[in-house]
Amino acid sequence: MVRKNLVALTAFISAAALALSGCGASNSGTGSAHPGGSDAPSSTVDKKWADCTPGAGAKDVTGMKKDDDRTITIAAFNGWDESFATAHMLKYALEKDGYSVSVKSFDAGPAYTGMAAGDVDLITDTWLPLTHADYIKKYGSKLESLGCWYDNARLTIAVNKDSPATSIEDLKSMGKEYDNTLYGIEAGAGETKVVKDTMIPAYGLQSTTFKVSSTPAMLAQLKKATSSGQNIAVTLWRPHWAYSAFPVRDLKDPKGAMGGAENIYTFARSGFGSDSPKAAQLARNLAFSDEDLASLENVMFSDTEYAGKDNDKAVAQWAEDHPEWIKKWEQGTLPAGKG
């Protein structure tokens, strides 16, 4: 499993710095993602990006003429599963229509620099209004927004579905049900810092053992517990394929200690919409629910499926199993909304 960094992601409601950027994934993507961005922590909030309906600019592309310019480069962020999932989904649909599409892996900074220079056509994984706000502030005049496709990106504390806790605050009185343990991810992850510095003090969970290790170790523990019928509490985030692979659910966070939700947008280089209007419209049509995105990522990245080793084949398999979703995407009728 490829090593990654999870970025600084702090409470949205307090407008604290939030950043997200994984390290070390290959062009194929690895399933070892994320939230947070160490290469560009953002301290600015542009509220215009906070209000977005996924697929708001959607329309039917099935009758549109093919673009004259059908060579497209899409950047996917190292270590971010949803970045590779959406990039390869666009690649699948466009190549089926006769386009030549390449997905190239970057850290966030070089990706935005390349797109501003015209070397990259699309980035499908811009988190706003906080995580990537500095990039949009710096390069926005050279980019085009193609709208958001997801509106529930957040840090979470998750438990097995059949366990008793419904809120994070329940872990204080029900700690014994979970062996007084919360399984975490990397020590340098933004989420780890949020849990240590904000969530645990907010809910008085100082007596809970917070086991900081790695994302693969946390997922292995989650798999072991859910397979054996044991209760477990873990640090997780949305979007993530674990929600499809395992019987888990989020605990409510009444104090907002884990932060609020962000939107995920697609951006293009300046002029892309006029150069490739059909491809741009297909990107605008994109809208994912939690269930569909987790299902796609599960096929792409879980160790019982493709494990990040062949993203093109994984996406093709998922598309073949979900023909109605593909049809609605092309027709611009995918449902949208919170998760």
Results as ranks from 00 to 15, higher is better:
157 I>M: 07
266 T>K: 01
308 G>D: 13
78 N>I: 11
23 C>I: 15
268 A>G: 08
271 G>W: 05
332 G>K: 00
328 K>M: 14
225 A>G: 03
44 T>E: 10
168 I>E: 02
331 Q>D: 02
170 D>Y: 07
260 G>E: 04
199 M>F: 11
157 I>D: 09
307 A>Q: 07
296 L>W: 01
171 L>G: 00
147 G>T: 07
127 W>D: 08
223 K>R: 12
245 A>E: 14
85 A>L: 03
28 S>L: 15
210 F>K: 08
208 T>E: 01
117 A>N: 09
339 G>Q: 07
273 G>M: 12
233 A>P: 10
213 S>V: 08
319 A>N: 00
301 F>E: 02
211 K>R: 07
299 V>N: 01
172 K>M: 07
1 M>I: 14
103 V>F: 05
314 A>K: 01
230 Q>S: 09
217 A>D: 14
264 I>F: 07
268 A>E: 12
90 L>V: 11
271 G>E: 04
326 I>K: 00
220 A>K: 12
178 Y>W: 00
181 T>K: 15
82 E>D: 08
201 P>M: 11
139 Y>D: 06
44 T>A: 01
21 S>C: 09
20 L>D: 13
280 A>T: 02
176 K>W: 04
260 G>R: 15
105 S>L: 04
153 A>R: 13
72 I>W: 02
231 N>Y: 03
2 V>N: 14
234 V>E: 09
38 S>W: 10
296 L>N: 01
60 D>T: 04
207 S>V: 02
322 H>E: 08
253 D>A: 02
40 A>C: 08
288 F>C: 07
134 D>P: 10
212 V>L: 04
99 Y>P: 04
142 K>D: 06
203 Y>R: 11
266 T>V: 15
